[in-house]
Design a protein around this nucleic acid. Structure first.
Lengths: 408, 408
DNA sequence: CCGACGTTGGTCGAATAATCCAACTTTTGT
DNA sequence: ACAAAAGTTGGATTATTCGACCAACGTCGG
């Protein structure tokens, strides 16, 4: 039950009904392809005539293409399958991380083209933009589709305001109030640039995933545990962005207000307990969270090494992981109590040790959630191989074409 | 940018456009009345002809009525003012609290009829339902509108699942898994019963308020500080309800996981720091949070007494309030970091001391919010005299008629 | 005082465009 | 040959949209 904002609403015009049904058809083709007109009519519980007209419009716009005829076991005319016409579009996704920047190129529905490449991240904004320009152009030449692309999605580790395009604070790169979009728009003249925070981008990757088993479409939360803790919240199929485009910072909700100091300056944030640094610090029994950003990623011992040692029988390593697991679960309980999502997705390096830590996480979740039902909230691991950040970056570019129209 | 859920969507039919515009017209009449057709056409940026047709439909359905002609300063035909036809509907709102239950009767747009009455809350479910039945019928007879009403909204202090109608846990009444709606539906045969948690009901009262200065329509949070801490979150003009209808329990997000024990069983919840009991406990220097529910409300010393003493110069009382203020602010910072709302509304007895505590609250908020902008998030006090819980109960009944249609 | 005039509110009717329904053609296995 | 399924076509209905029209009312010049 949504209220209509009397100061900001969208009235229905003659074309509104068609626009709605058009987007539904597009969505159904995207998620069910290959699919025939008759299938669409059944899925939408409408008659085939209407589908014919809607599809005709989409074919004219070259958003959809007809493919091979399908085959039926039963007598009757064979269906003509419909596909999203993905040849036309090219999207670039960039995942900026403290050490390296990763890049993926896809077609207009997010199907990967070529290999994922990576290159060192420059810390100086001007150099950063120039290197991005060079790398993106090179990659586009190599996949041989076009010298340009439909849009570039950039996922940034830190607080960003995607509307103004300003990086508010990225401690890992040492950036504050950098007007990144303006710079990138100058570098890639005429190309749309989208900027998003890493936690929210990961959530986007689940909303717009076409994998059948992914159901992040209604209410879900993505928790990305890495150098920091990024959280993206999906409510009603829409990413929660907030007034200042900074919603979702559950990483800085405290476990204990006088706990260890966090990179944000406050004490006892969830992030200060479960970030990779925090876990490594506990293993080494000393505080490494105060290192300078430049040296953080060059530390020779990573969380992956820790997991390897734990698997190898290092009981101290296992204890450090279990400790992180407990704090992870306690924080997840807060997220669950606050949002009550249908799914929680967890990404980050620590998920590689999920078999070692799952029971500790679930136990801590059950301990602090308010009801038994909440304690049983589905938790799914998103492995690094699925590149949720890059997929989210791509979604920034490709998703708008499939989004529901704003109405009422 | 919302994604369309391919497993659960609503296609546009012939009537969809009209339905959308109809609800917009209704909303505009509700919020702008008295208003003329020409005004509506200007507000909706459409032509007057369309408004005429839409209004004609609403007049036929007797949802809207024409009133006196307005007067203009300028030459020209006088407008005929339109009003929501509120004579027809009667809504009952019930605010169940540990000590007493409050009742308000309104017309179909939430305008109060008669006086607000209260009666003691029965703790035994069967007696509770019977007493509600008696009191509601008596009150309806007294206001003399009708023996029945359109619907009854019940706000309950505890966890409720409004869909199944079950009170999951209400520690203050000692209820667990009581199928309240079923019992009430038997008592008020044929009348719609709506059940909601108190924090979320307060948020509803702001969404559906017609006061011009209330802008809770998009993203806002209502924090109700009383015996417990109830929180309602509004995202995109819609109350966040969650998978199990328990979303918004920020009251049990911890400030310190090894802090004082909370009524929920866990340690260090926000509620355990800022509930009225917690504040009184700090004043008396002892733990009164473990009292049995039956005796809690019969304690002779209330938070209002504490505020009176603080105003009277009792420095220990002021210190207790300031301490509560600081914890309130620290928790609000978490809410702001997580949700990034446009507004935060605060209700509850402690708001009567807002002049004494505001600076401490704001300081604590600024201390833990991630950006300067977040630290400046608007905080508004909702005084008890506005009866947000009762207004929320009423909204449960009256709002559906004005809600945006579900589309796409 | 009074009627022409301009302005505003509200309505009517034709044009356009959407869904909806039924009938139709095309294709294909049996 | 026939039935069944896919896809198309055209008429019915119903929505917004636009222009023109009528009604009501203050102003102003005589």
């Amino acid at each position: 039950m949504r209220s209509i904002n009397p100061k900001d609403f969208t009235k229905a015009t003659r074309g509104t009904s068609r626009e709605i049904n058009r987007q539904i058809v597009l969505t159904l083709i995207r998620t069910h392809q290959p699919v025939s007109r008759a299938d669409l009519a059944r899925l939408m519980e409408t008659n085939r005539a209407n589908i014919t007209l809607l599809v005709k419009e989409l074919l004219d716009e070259e958003l959809v293409r007809e493919g091979a005829r399908g085959s039926l076991r039963v007598p009757g005319r064979k269906p003509t399958f419909l596909y999203i016409n993905s040849d036309k579009g090219v999207a670039v996704g960039l995942d900026v991380r403290a050490s390296r920047t990763f890049m993926m190129i896809t077609d207009s529905i997010g199907k990967q083209i070529g290999e994922i490449v990576s290159f060192p991240t420059k810390f100086e904004p001007d150099e950063f933009v120039a290197s991005l320009g060079w790398q993106v152009r090179k990659a586009l030449r190599e996949v041989g589709v076009a010298p340009s692309c439909d849009g570039i999605g950039v996922v940034f580790p830190g607080m960003v305001d995607r509307e103004s395009g300003i990086v508010i604070n990225a401690p890992k790169l040492g950036w504050k109030n950098v007007h990144l979009i303006e710079m990138l728009e100058k570098e890639f003249e005429g190309t749309e640039i989208h900027l998003e925070n890493s936690g929210r981008a990961c959530a986007l990757s689940q909303i717009w995933s076409t994998r059948g088993d992914v159901n992040g479409q209604n209410d879900s939360v993505f928790v990305s545990v890495s150098d920091g803790v990024g959280v993206g919240v999906v409510i009603n199929g829409e990413l929660m962005r907030g007034k200042h485009n900074t919603a979702g910072e559950f990483g800085h909700v405290p476990l204990s207000i006088d706990g260890p100091q966090c990179s944000c300056g406050a004490h006892g944030c969830w992030e200060a307990y479960i970030s990779n640094f925090a876990t490594l610090s506990r293993y080494f029994g000393r505080d490494i969270s105060r290192r300078q950003p430049e040296t953080i990623e060059t530390v020779d011992f990573t969380i992956e090494d820790l997991i390897r040692r734990a698997r190898g029988g290092d009981s101290k390593a296992l204890t450090a992981l279990h400790s992180a697991a407990r704090y992870l679960g306690l924080g997840l309980a807060s997220v669950i109590n606050a949002i009550d999502p249908s799914f929680i997705y967890i990404g980050g390096e620590i998920t590689e040790a999920w078999d070692l830590i799952e029971s500790q996480v679930r136990e801590a979740v059950a301990e602090r959630t308010l009801t038994r039902e909440l304690g049983k909230t589905t938790i799914r691991i998103v492995p690094a191989i699925e590149y949720p950040r890059l997929r989210g970056a791509i979604a920034l570019v490709t998703a708008p074409a499939f989004a529901a129209p704003k109405v009422a």
